[in-house]
Amino acid sequence: MRNRVREQRTQQGLSQSELAAALGVSRQTVISIEGGRYLPSLPLAFAIARFFDMTVDKMFDPDDEEAGT
């Protein structure tokens, strides 16, 4: 499942640590989500989408299999 977390984060000029602190997770988890190695829980997915002022389906695209799941 592809996601736009890295794209949105870099667009807003945030570091992985800053995003992690804002979401209340570790930097390692942000790295795993960006790399598509970890699918966040529904509450975390909503928190990410809300943080970037997007909808969950725009942030996480289940039809795009480019990145790993």
Binding site: G24, V25, S26, Q28, T29, S32, Y38, P40, S41, L44
Partner: peptide, 15 residues
């Protein structure tokens, strides 16, 4: 790192 977070009882959902 992940081990540090687990040892420090501050693990997030993935950890």
């Amino acid at each position: 790192n992940d081990e540090g977070a687990l040892a420090g009882s501050r693990a997030d959902e993935r950890q």
